[in-house]
Design a protein around this nucleic acid. Structure first.
Lengths: 229, 229
DNA sequence: TCAAAAGTGTTCGCTTTACACCCATGC
DNA sequence: GCATGGGTGTAAAGCGAACACTTTTGA
């Protein structure tokens, strides 16, 4: 085992934590940001992040970032992309591995962290606006062909809750009857015991049929559909 | 600008370079591998890779890896995932950023590099089998909803060439008439001047309508289709 | 003349889409 | 009783899937 002579780099984990925000009538996605206490970009907003420690797994570093902001146990966490432009951090070379975290509510957070609009965010430090844009694009894509919405909902929810998530993230209105038919036909969700009551007819509760990320087959037939061995 | 006190890590760029291989009648995908000249895994096959130099962009490092193997100018290069398990390299911490490169032919390569079957590869060093599997999965996915096949074809090609790429990567047979209808309807390809001749009726040449990665809209209606602002 | 691949249209079934009314509850 | 959101079916259009024969060339 020879040592490795090559250059070494600092490696950061930056997290795009998203939640649906119910305030203000209609649902909008919000992202967790922190105000930078020090230069560079002192006073600006940035995605929460940290340097990866020696011997620490990348995903573990991302979880540590979330825990520091008060978010234990995100419902979903996946790696996004890695950003390594040599000049992306004015202090010197930092390679940033970005993660997407989903939680069902913008729960109160610790320290300098705040939730702010993910679609119209403030100016963010470094290349964090690019990272956020990539996260939203990934989420929109996966909503279309997977059950990733489980990350943005509590254990039990109504079909209208689910539809509002889709509408908030995709940006648009969906037909209620067609939406219900589709998610039920896909077996994405299953009836759960209980209803939610309110000043209206009670709504049936559902849960996700699978609690882990699942690519829904038969979502739609793409170019190579029908390929058979 | 304060210095950053945190741990530093070696960062590697590993490349999954894929090409279609026409030898043996039917087309199969092949991947570029190198035999490791030194421990660890001495004598084993591995994906070509290198340590990222100080001040070097991640993608530039990937291109340098390709150039060292004799592949200048891949037709497509994109980042895959980043692997950072603390024990993935027995020599110590190495964070690996993996890339997918596509070229239209398994051209002769330099040094210890060889093309070998991507679907039934030899045992690979480190976690490179996992990286290769991820690359193939990414490629299969993107074939379905993008024009990424341009990376595996020369400038001009016949529709049968294109279909053979799809069949080789997806693993299965496609109906010729339906396939032609689809790719033409999607405007993925455009007629090019000239035909290819052979011991059969001449075949019209085509080129890709766009030479950069393009997500084809209207490929298929997924869950959130019909979302309108 | 033969082999080999290119080129071409139609039918059937399913999925998607568009669309409007009644229901159950809390206040 | 009224406001609020929940729940449901049908008809039309578009898309995907299946399928067979003729054409052109080189040898």
């Amino acid at each position: 085992m020879s040592p490795l002579p090559q250059a070494s780099h600092r490696v950061a984990a930056d997290v795009v934590a998203l939640a649906p925000n119910a305030a203000g009538g209609n649902l909008t996605p919000v992202v967790l940001t922190v105000r930078r206490p020090r230069p560079p970009f002192e006073g600006d907003w940035a995605l929460p992040g940290t340097m990866v420690r020696s011997g620490e797994d990348l995903e573990a570093a991302a979880r540590r970032v979330l825990a520091a902001a008060g978010l234990l146990q995100p419902r979903h966490l996946e790696q996004l992309a890695t950003f390594g432009a040599p000049d992306r951090d004015p202090r010197g070379r930092v390679v940033s591995v970005s993660y997407l975290a989903l939680v069902p509510q913008p729960t109160p957070v610790l320290g300098a962290a705040r939730w702010c609009s993910a679609c119209a965010p403030p100016t963010l430090a470094f290349d964090h606006e690019q990272i956020l844009a990539g996260a939203l694009q990934r989420l929109r894509g996966k909503l279309s062909y997977s059950n990733i919405a489980y990350g943005l909902l509590p254990e039990a929810f109504t079909l209208s809750d689910l539809q509002r998530i889709y509408e908030a993230v995709l940006g648009g209105q969906l037909d209620r009857r067609n939406f219900r038919k589709k998610v039920l036909a896909l077996d994405m969700v299953t009836e759960a015991p209980g209803q939610r009551r309110g000043p209206h007819r009670p709504a049936q509760l559902y849960r996700f049929s699978s609690r882990v990320l699942t690519v829904l087959d038969d979502v739609a037939p793409p170019i190579g559909a029908g390929a058979r061995p």
